[in-house]
Design a protein around this nucleic acid. Structure first.
Lengths: 203, 203
DNA sequence: TCGAAAAGTGAGGATATCCTCACTTTGGAG
DNA sequence: CTCCAAAGTGAGGATATCCTCACTTTTCGA
């Protein structure tokens, strides 16, 4: 069986220059995807934005889909890592801190990786990839919450994780809406809602 | 100035058959958009699905974008109308009823118009149209909530409307996720969260 | 009945994007 | 220094979709 899935790189970067190219290409792809969406971005444009030629782009990513998936994987790993850092000290946080951190998580992550949310939420590539990532994120959330509320059942914590995840998404959406009036107040209110909910879960 | 915006129909249906065609075309377009996304759906496919020819499609919709916008407008009007029906009796509802109805609103609407949420939330047409609709929906929500909590300021009710809107979206997302385990429990939990939040707003 | 306007048709022109390929350049190991 | 694989290049083939247009068919009021 020829190992040919759409995530395969045609040629793995081996020298330093290759790795730099790949990084530049992925970054350019991210920028294009945010600005124009998946179908709207052009392989030519991605290459140009990375200071490369189309040929060079296709050396490392055999397909536009492969490019998008590689980008998603990179982002996904980053999210899991950042969420992992929540684990240890989080047990000592107040409800207010929990609400603030959870609401802020996607918002802050989005500032560093603007393409993540749109890519994972609503882009028409292998939508299955986005689903996988959302589910794993939910599982991590569940574990995180369970640590703080060990008296609850797994089912309860799963449902709670779902709700918290949707609220995180909501906060990110508020942050992302262009020209939204009263954004700060709305974000604080979202935080209140999160706190009110967590009170029921943890209290 | 020739009245040429992308919402224009090339020819307004005048006979009954024309109106039926337009309806069929819009319905077909909705189905295609849900299944394949905006860029993924083909004008030829829409026409075929409606039992028409491409030529016929272009008689009424000069552009794919015009088709999508017309569909959005149709959906938008339906949402406003349905939300309007909330107005009168809602003053007498309990918090539980409020939570249930608000969480269920988009879910039920989506069952009848599956393309609405994806179209308004995350499709790359004139994204400005989706923004407008979301904002108007938010305003209606604000008015609805204000009726029940007249003692709050406009700013407070606006922020509350934003939060409620995000939670409604969240509920719809839960409902829409394919193959989600524990969906019913998650939806109930979302309802609990809504109720907990409304308690702060109305209480 | 008749004719004009509405509705319908589908081949194909214009365009755009994905991706290939034959070739050149680069840089580091021996 | 030499040599070779990695890295780089960009014109153009293949394909696909949007939309036009010249034409036919249907409908309906006079």
């Amino acid at each position: 069986m020829p190992s040919q899935n759409s995530t395969d790189v045609r040629r793995k970067p081996q020298r330093q220059r290759g790795h730099e190219r790949v990084a530049a290409l992925l970054e350019a792809a991210g920028a294009c995807f945010v600005e124009k969406g998946y179908d709207g971005t052009t392989m030519t444009e991605v290459a140009a934005r990375a200071g490369a030629s189309i040929g060079s782009l296709y050396q490392f990513f055999p397909t536009k889909e492969a490019l998008a998936r590689a980008l998603m994987q990179q982002y996904a790993q980053a999210v899991y890592e950042e969420l992992g850092k929540f684990a240890e000290p989080s047990a000592h946080w107040s409800l207010e801190e929990w609400a603030e951190r959870l609401c802020g998580f996607l918002i802050h992550f989005r500032k560093r990786h603007p393409a993540f949310v749109p890519l994972v939420e609503s882009m028409p590539m292998p939508a299955a990839d986005g689903l996988h990532i959302r589910r794993r994120l939910r599982a991590e959330l569940q574990a995180l919450l369970a640590r703080r509320a060990p008296h609850r059942s797994d089912e309860q914590m799963y449902a709670a994780a779902v709700v918290v995840q949707q609220m995180m998404k909501g906060a990110a959406a508020i942050q992302a809406e262009p020209g939204m009036p009263g954004r700060q107040a709305a974000l604080l209110e979202m935080q209140n809602a999160m706190q009110a909910y967590l009170h029921g879960v943890f209290g």
